[in-house]
Every structure is written in C-alpha cells, then in structure tokens.
Design a protein around this nucleic acid. Structure first.
Lengths: 351, 351
DNA sequence: TATTAGCACTCACCTTAAATGAGTGCCAAG
DNA sequence: CTTGGCACTCATTTAAGGTGAGTGCTAATA
C-alpha cells in the first residue's frame, strides 16, 4: 500500500495508450472504453490489461470517466500532456500552403483587409472560429495628419499611418479654428513630426513645448496641444476581428443553447478574449490554452490555439482559432502557425 | 350546409377574442385554450361557447392548434389582423422617451457612432436584436478629397463627407504619381468639385472632360479619371450594424440550435436581411414583417419591425428590431418609431 | 338562434419499470 | 505481468399506464 504510483513516471506504453485514447476521442467524441482501446492501439493486449493501465492514467488525473460505466475521456491535464509531448504535428503539404497563401495576397489593398482575410481563412479551413487581434500600434509611425473644421468647436482629425491605414476621430476643443488655421497646424505637424514613432512622439512634443516656450506663437501652441490630444486617446480600446462564430454551433459539446449564449456574449464583450490573446503576444510560436487553463469560466469547454504575427519590426498582434477542447490539434496547430507566418509575410512586402 | 361562413365578417366579439388570445399568447408563449380564454376575456361566456368561436377563427385561418389537444396559437394571418386592426399602440411615456433621447445625443462625435448607439439602444430596450442600415449616400456631398502615394502604383484616397464621415480606399493605377502630383490633383478636385452632390458629380466630370478635351494637360486628365474611379466604386456594398444578436437565444421558439445557426448565418451573410430592409426605405412609417411574410425561409419564425430614418433631405436608411413572431408588438412598434425619429433628429442638428 | 352542460375522445407529457449493454473493478489462475 | 472470468454499475432505451388539458359534438336550455 505504499503509494509509489503517485509520481510514477508513465511507462512508454501508458503514454502511447493515452495518445491513442485522445486521438480516438478527438475523432468521434465519445468516451472510449478498454475494448475499443485494445483494438485501436494495435498492441497485443487484452481489454483487462488495458483497464489496468487506464486505471493508472486515471490515478494520475489524465483521464476520467464521465460516469461509472462509460469509457474514459481526457482531462485538461491529459490533453496538455498529449499536445506537449505526444503529439506529432505533421507539416501541411505544399498544396495546402499554396492555397492558403493565395488567400493572403500581399497585394490585398489594405492591412485591414489582410487581417479580415486571415481570420476568414482560419475559420474556413478549420471549420471553427478564427480570430485576429488588431495590431498594437505603439511603435507604428504616422506619415500624415490632417485637420478639418466641423460645427461647434469640433475638429475632425485624419491620421494616416505608414502602412496606409487611416484613422479618424473628432476632437472637442475650447475654441474653434478656421480651415486656414487648421491647415497651418497640419503643415507644422507634418513637417516637424511626421514619420516619428508614436511612442516617442509625445516626448518630442513636450520637448518642443519647453524649448520654444517663449518664442512660440499661439498657433504652434495650439498645434502641439492638439497633437497631444490626438495621440493621447490613440485608437480607442484594442479589438479583434472574428469569423465563423456560427461554426461552433456544429459541435455537440456546445449544443446547449445556454452555453452558446455565454460564449457568444464573451465574444461580444471582447475583454476576456483580448486579455487572453494578449498573453500570447509575448510568446514565440504557437500557444495553446486548453479548456479551463485559460482561467475564464466561459471558455471552460473550448480551447484556443494562437500564434503572434509581426509587421515591420516586431510582433504586433495575435491570431488564432477557437474551438472545442476536442479539436484536431495536430491539424490546427500547423494551420495557425502557417497562417501567422503568411500573414506576417503579407504585411511586410518589403522584406 | 351552404358555406356562408367562408367570407363571413368577423363579429366584434370574435375579433375581441382573437385580440385577447394573441395578447395572452404573446405574454407567456403557450397555446391558449378555451377555458383560459373564457376567464381572460372578461366576457361572461362559457368555455363551450368560446370553443365555437375559436372554431370559427380557425376556419378563417387566424389561429391553429399545434396538435389535437392543445390550445390555439395565432397564425401569421392572425398576427397580421391583430397588428393591423386590433392593436392599440400606447405611446411611450415621457420618461422613457427622455431616457432614449439621452442615448442618442446629437453631440455624439460621429454619425457612425450615432447609428451604433441606435442599434444598441433598440437591442437593449427590447431585449431583442437591433439593426440599423448604413445610410445610402447617393445624394450626400463631399467636402474634401486627398490622395496619398503608396508602394507599387497604389494610391490611398481619403474622402471626407460633409457630415464628417471619412471614407478611404486604395486605388490601383497603371502608373505611379509622386506626392506633389497627387497634391495638385487633390487641389484641382477640391477647388472645382467639392460640395457637389455625388450623383451629379460624375456628370460634371464627364462634361469637364469633354469641354477641355484639347486644352487639358495630363494631370487634369489623371485627376478626372481618378475621381471617376473613386466615385464609381463608392462605398462597397451597403451594410448594416447589429446589436444584441445573442438576445434571440433567450426565446424558447428559437432554442433549437439548428434554427439559431441558420438565423445567425443569415445575419452574417446580410444579403437577405438587407433586401428585406431595403423594401422599408420607401415606406412612410413603421413596417412590420411577420414570419414567413418576409419571404425568406430563415426568417420564418421571426418578425421584423422597421422604420426609415432620414438625414439631411430625405430618407437614407432603415432601422428596426428582429425578434420572435411572438413579440410584444404594442411595445416594439412605438419604440422603433420613436428611435427612428430621435435618430433622424440627432443626425440633423441644424434643423 | 345563441348558449351551455355533458361526454367521449385525443394526445402530449410524465412517471414507472424493466430490459439492454457498454464498461468497470477485482480476483485468481496462467 | 497478463488474462479470463465474474459480479456490478449505471446511462440509455423501450414499453406501459396514468394524467390532464383541451377538443368536437350533441342535446338540452333560455
């Protein structure tokens, strides 16, 4: 009775059986029993022996049975072991990659459209939900700014970033400026600051403000405070693009309307999903959150497979796939990986 | 046996009973039987008499029983009669209107945001799905256009409309232009054509093209063909904003995942919904499509209540609510009506 | 003629019980 | 260590009976 099985290293055979079990469960979604496993494994073992091993696996918390007389199902820990050490990701074949590349054409008119294509592609190819976070732009630089008067002291700001993305917002000011004044302000900012990195811009502005404190005319002062306002509120809250949400309705484990509703609500509120995806932006390659690992209750029954993509210098966003824990990881992982690479390439036609 | 009931005019009493039945069914979603109706109606009639009348109503196709021993449920025809002649829409009380108005603040920074607020408001207040089509802009005029060179013969076009909305798109051209040339082109277009109505613009352009055929320098020619390109493809396909899709999951009649999936897919494909909503743009006030009336199979189980809204001169878009056929029309109708008015008012601060 | 009471009938829905069968744990023998 | 055997568990299925809401019809009543 000495508990020597507690941190017992899994035998190769046990690991192999876990692998077979997970694969089988992923394939058809039903608890797999000892007899099935015995046949499926190809090993020459009787169901009874399999049962012994399964008992070990259960003791280690890698599998559970949903109820007494059902087969076993992988736990999160089981999936984790599976994807971390048992899984063989077979690279996509050339033809698939070519197909994917054709959907992420760098000649696509705008980066925005590229991102939309990427999430659509992920969703279409995996038949699950594709998601792409919009680029963090702290280190992006802008190339042109334009101001335009609106009614009642409001000013429309148009900001063009180097990659051709256009942002616009409306500023409420204390006083109005006429078109000519605004034109001067635009000119001043464009000639002095265009091309600067957004994060270093504010420092530059403050410097300028100090340096020229006395000599400065009112217009320049206005220009600088206005620019400050613009870049202060930059971009609103970050967000993402999704595609294929409805695909998730096909999966039996989500066929409960209440669960679906919670999941979709989470998609709409975005906050949880975003903070989760943000964790991946630091990581190097593909990241996987299985079920409850994510830490969000709504995501208990789904897994997220993600990978960062880059633009210009560094990583700026994350893309991925959301689907049931019981997803075909060995397929999804390379798909996400390749999509991230292709997107990065498409976003950097220069290189 | 002479069929004199065939196009019999409904007695007042029968109509009244239909009204009570529909109201009751809307209230708690279950088939209503003769006994319930007898009590609910307030009339001093026994269930047996009610049954006779219900038989008449059924013969006229206004109600049906889902199965032999259930109560009766309104048919589409029944709902139609109900909303057309039986329904008393009570106007919203002052307080509600004030609340709604506060959510559609004309000081809202951009029209886009106003539309988003409107659909959000509709969804929040009805607990169903709110939808707002984006304005048709054929008659809108623009106030400023700007071109900016991108890599590889592509040009970024920024178009500012009079209401402050900004549109941008990318043109692929046969040859490249440098920043200076594009600047000249912008200047030319802005000084000659800004403020023109978009629909008459192309005519103006063609005239100009003919008038100055020989005397024209290459740049002007480029300007005109470019502008033509811009305004030709104006705006991509029309679309709409939605809010509260997930609210529909609460309704029992849509608790079937398969139905939900089809409905949500329809929302995503937009085409059917848009053509349906477009029909309403011509109508004066509130329009109602009940179930299959819409002509789209996916919408069989839902109703659409819509009203057009205006901006500047005429009607430019439609907003509305999508919910189960069994919705509280007497509440939804005034809500949609008022929202349309408030939105129109907010979009026309001048007037 | 309109209304009503009475009655037989239908049918969804619930409860109960029994049968089924996949799967398990454990033990003793190989 | 492996295996056959065996008793046991328990979700799932099937059948059967009971319940009750609701109906249509008929005949009596006002």
């Amino acid at each position: 009775m000495i508990n020597e099985s507690h941190d017992k290293i899994l035998s190769d055979r046990a690991q192999y059986l876990l692998k077979v079990l997970v694969e089988r469960y992923i394939r058809d979604g039903e608890p797999v029993g000892s007899r099935t496993l015995s046949k499926d494994s190809g090993l020459d073992l009787s169901p009874a022996s399999i049962r012994n091993i399964m008992a070990d696996l259960e003791e280690l918390g890698l599998i559970v049975s949903p109820h007494t007389s059902a087969g076993r199902v992988p736990t999160v820990k089981g999936y984790r072991l599976f994807v971390d050490t048992l899984l063989k990701v077979k690279p996509l074949d050339e033809q698939e990659v070519r197909l994917m590349r054709s959907h992420l054409d760098p000649a696509e008119t705008s980066p925005q459209q590229l991102l939309a294509s990427a999430s659509g592609l992920l969703s279409a190819i995996t038949r699950m939900t594709g998601v792409v976070t919009l680029p963090k732009r702290e280190q992006a630089s802008w190339r042109h700014i334009e101001f335009m008067p609106l009614a009642e002291n409001r000013v429309l700001v148009i900001l063009v970033l180097v990659d051709g993305e256009v942002q616009n917002r409306v500023l409420h000011l204390e006083r109005g400026y006429d078109a000519a004044a605004l034109q001067q302000i635009s000119n001043y900012l464009n000639s002095h600051f265009a091309g600067r990195d957004l994060s270093e811009l504010r420092r530059g502005l403050l410097n300028e403000l100090n340096r020229t404190r006395e000599s400065m005319n009112e217009l320049m002062h206005a220009a600088i405070t206005m620019a400050d306002k613009v870049f202060q509120v930059r971009g609103g809250e970050p967000t993402y693009m999704m595609a294929g949400e409805t695909n998730l309705m096909e999966f039996a484990e989500l066929s409960d309307v209440e669960k679906l509703r919670r999941l979709f609500d989470a998609f709409n509120h975005k906050r949880d999903i975003l903070t989760l995806l943000d964790k991946c932006i630091a990581a190097e390659g593909v990241q996987i959150f299985i079920g409850e690992e994510s830490g969000y209750k709504v995501l208990d029954e789904v897994s997220v497979v993600s990978a960062p993509y880059s633009m210009g210098e560094g990583v700026v966003g994350v893309l991925g796939v959301i689907g049931p824990t019981r997803m075909a990881y060995e397929r999804v992982i390379p798909i996400v990986d390749v999509t991230a690479r292709l997107l990065s390439a498409a976003l950097n036609p220069r290189k």
